[in-house]
C-alpha cells in the first residue's frame, strides 16, 4: 500500500503520457501499415500543432482556436503527403524516408524562424488544466481526461476502419497496395485519409500533451515522436490496438523509472525496449508475421 501511494503520482502521469503517445502512435502505425514509411515528420507536425494553438489563443477565444488548430494540422499533414511523399511513390523506400527526414528538418527550421528561437508558453486551457486530488496525488484534470478521450477516439477509429467503405479501402491498401489499386480502390484518397486521421489525432494529442509541459520549442516534437514510433513498433506496426497498448506500457514504464530516480535513463529505456523487441519478436505484440520470400 505504501508503495502504491508513493508511486501513484508517477503511475497517473504514466497513464496520461501513455494516452498522449497513443494518439501520436496511431499516425505512425497507420502510415507505416499502408506506405511502409516511417514518417519522421509526424513528431514535428505534432509540434507545429502546439505552436498553432499558442499563436491562435493570443488573438482568438479558445473555442475557436482549438478547432482552428485541428484544421491547420490536418491541412499541414495532407500538404506534406502531397508535396513530399506522393512524388516519390515509385521510388525506393529509403528515398521516401530521407524525404521525411528532410520535411522534419524543414518544419523544425520553420518553427525556429517563426518563434525566433524563444520557448513559447503554452496557454492554460480551462477544465483540463484544473488541478484535482486523487488519493494522495495532486494532478491536473488532463490526467483523467487523456485516457478516456484516447479510448473513445480509438474506439471511433476502429468503427471507421471496420465498418465504412474508406476503412475497408485502408485495410485493403495495407494488405496489398498493388492489388487494391487493381480492384478500383482510389489508393491516393485512402492515403490522404490516413494522413488526415493521423494529423488530427496528433493535434488532439498535442493539446493534451502540452497542457502538462509549460512551453513549446521547435525540437519538442522530436522525442515524443520517436517514443510514439517505438510504441507502434512495440505493439506491432500496422496494428492500431497494438500501438495504443504499446504506448500505455511505454508511458507507464517511463514514469515509474523517473519515480525510481533514474530520470537520465527514461528515454534510454524506451530505446532499449525497442531493441529488445526487435530482436526477440520483430513483429511486435500484435503484428502479423510476414515472411521474406526469396
Amino acid at each position: 500500500m505504501d508503495f502504491i501511494s508513493k508511486n501513484l503520482p508517477y503511475l497517473l502521469a504514466g497513464i496520461s503520457v501513455g494516452g498522449q503517445y497513443a494518439l501520436i502512435a496511431i499516425g505512425y502505425t497507420m502510415v507505416y501499415g499502408i506506405l511502409r514509411l516511417i514518417n519522421f515528420a509526424h513528431g514535428d507536425i505534432f509540434m507545429v500543432a502546439a505552436l498553432v494553438t499558442v499563436y491562435a489563443t493570443t488573438t482568438l477565444p479558445l473555442y475557436v482556436s482549438i478547432p482552428l488548430t485541428l484544421v491547420v494540422t490536418v491541412i499541414l499533414g495532407l500538404a506534406v503527403e502531397r508535396v513530399a511523399y506522393k512524388p516519390l511513390r515509385s521510388a525506393p523506400r529509403m528515398s521516401v524516408m530521407i524525404s521525411a527526414i528532410g520535411v522534419s528538418y524543414l518544419l523544425q527550421n520553420l518553427a525556429l524562424y517563426v518563434t525566433g528561437g524563444l520557448a513559447q508558453t503554452y496557454p492554460a486551457i480551462p477544465f483540463i488544466s484544473d488541478t484535482i486530488q486523487i488519493g494522495s496525488a495532486t494532478t491536473k484534470m488532463v490526467t483523467i481526461v487523456t485516457p478516456i478521450l484516447t479510448i473513445v477516439l480509438v474506439f471511433a477509429l476502429m468503427q471507421l476502419i471496420n465498418h465504412t467503405k474508406i476503412g475497408m479501402g485502408m485495410r485493403a491498401a495495407a494488405n496489398d497496395f498493388e492489388t487494391s489499386r487493381l480492384m478500383g480502390i482510389k489508393v491516393d484518397n485512402v492515403i490522404s485519409m490516413t494522413f488526415l486521421i493521423g494529423s488530427f489525432l496528433a493535434a488532439v494529442g498535442s493539446v493534451l500533451y502540452f497542457t502538462n509541459y509549460a512551453s513549446v520549442v521547435p525540437t519538442s516534437g522530436a522525442m515524443p515522436g520517436l517514443k510514439a514510433f517505438v510504441a507502434a513498433v512495440f505493439g506491432g506496426i500496422g496494428s492500431i490496438p497494438g500501438a495504443v497498448i504499446g504506448a500505455f506500457i511505454i508511458g507507464i514504464c517511463e514514469n515509474i523509472i523517473k519515480g525510481l530516480g533514474w530520470t537520465t535513463f527514461s528515454d534510454a529505456f524506451t530505446f532499449a525496449l525497442l531493441i529488445v523487441i526487435l530482436i526477440v519478436k520483430p513483429t511486435g505484440l500484435f503484428g502479423e508475421g510476414a515472411t521474406d520470400k526469396v
Binding site: M94, F271, A272, L278, P282
Partner: peptide, 11 residues
C-alpha cells in the same frame, strides 16, 4: 532496412 535505422538511432 528501416528497422536497422530505428535501432541504431535508439542506440
Amino acid at each position: 532496412s528501416d528497422y536497422l535505422a530505428i535501432a541504431t538511432l535508439g542506440f
